[in-house]
């Protein structure tokens, strides 16, 4: 047995399987930083996935797929923003409905196309586009090299987006203004920041990023459509990961790998146990459901610990999260 190969492929899988989480998380961080709690990540990713995949296949182009997924997600964001920012609707309800609605569209379109025999199979050029690109030198590092540095283009894009959004939030004035809105919209408003416009823009942007994450999952499934959704709960893990990452996109990268580590153990734990019976043999006895539940358990603990400490300035939780802003409120 190729023990090194097992480790390498384990590392490779951590990245490959879990990057959609990063998209979902970074997108949700952008949305939540504007003070909006969008519980519709799952549905938003689902519409991004289905429309991105279909349009990508018909146009036979990866770029078209990515753009369509982004636009589909952003349109969902627009719906959320119109309802919560302009029409002052309850954010929890709107978000949950967005999930129901999004999954409804996903299956309606997907099953509809399959029933009529029009479901597109994945094209060669998409397969090509989703294949691994090795980074020279780095990918030659033994063991971890090809695990970390030989991936498809969407992996690199996802990490680039996360780093960019971290920089954007922390080091640009737009990010500063966005954070101000999430913390205290009245204060932001009073210095002449256009609160509504910024909220609309960032909700759409964040939801668009989620959409790309959905597209990724569709490609990773090679477009095989069955009764369980491609997104498969990743949207909800993303909501959890936002808390774990303390609303920081760069920690979200680490968080993705931490959550992804457990997620991958579920898939590859048994092969690790087989390769290293002495050290890791016990892995075979751990129920896979524990790995699946761990992200949520960890997040619940993080949630409780932060609420006990509740130290100002430390938590990235936007103070006005979940509250709608109405300027003339007396």
């Amino acid at each position: 047995m190729d023990k090194v190969g097992v480790i390498t492929s384990f590392i490779h899988n951590i990245v490959l399987l879990n990057i959609p989480l990063l998209y979902g998380t970074v997108g949700e961080i952008v949305v939540e930083k504007s003070g909006s709690l969008n519980l519709g990540v799952e549905g938003t990713m689902a519409v991004g996935a289905i429309f991105g995949y279909i349009c990508g296949c018909y146009a036979n182009s990866m770029i078209v797929g990515i753009l369509t997924a982004f636009i589909a997600g952003a349109l969902f964001g627009l719906l959320f923003a119109a309802l919560t920012v302009s029409l002052q609707a309850n954010q929890n309800i709107t978000g949950l409905t967005l999930t129901t609605f999004g999954l409804g569209i996903y299956f309606f379109v997907g099953n509809g196309l399959r029933a009529s025999g029009n479901w597109p199979t994945i094209t060669e050029s998409l397969k090509e586009g989703f294949s691994d690109i090795s980074i020279p030198l780095l990918s030659d590092i033994p063991i971890i090299g090809s695990g970390f540095f030989s991936h498809n283009v969407l992996v690199y894009l996802g990490i680039a987006i996360a780093i960019f959004m971290w920089w954007y939030l922390k080091h640009t004035k737009f990010g500063l203004r966005l954070r101000a809105i999430g913390e205290n919209p009245a204060a932001a408003d009073s210095v002449g920041i256009n609160v509504k416009r910024s909220k609309y823009f960032h909700i759409c942007l964040g939801c668009g990023i989620m959409g790309i994450g959905g597209y990724y999952m569709g490609l990773n499934m090679s477009g095989s459509f069955n009764s369980s959704c491609w997104i498969n709960g990743y949207g909800w893990i993303a909501v959890a990961l936002v808390i774990f990452a303390n609303w920081n996109p760069s920690i979200a990268i680490i968080g993705t790998f931490v959550f992804g580590f457990f997620n991958t153990l579920r898939v590859s734990g048994s092969s690790l146990a087989l390769a290293f019976p002495d050290f890791l043999g016990w892995l075979a006895d751990v129920p896979t459901q524990l790995y699946q539940a761990l992200p949520f358990i960890i997040t619940a603990i993080v949630l409780v610990v932060t609420s006990i400490k509740n130290k100002r300035g430390r938590s990235g939780l936007p103070a006005a999260l979940g509250l709608n802003y109405f300027r003339e409120e007396r």
Partner: peptide, 15 residues
């Protein structure tokens, strides 16, 4: 028409 039409419709109604 897939049965998920109900979920879609439900979403539109709520919105």
């Amino acid at each position: 028409v897939d049965s998920s039409f109900a979920n879609m419709l439900q979403g539109v109604i709520l919105f």
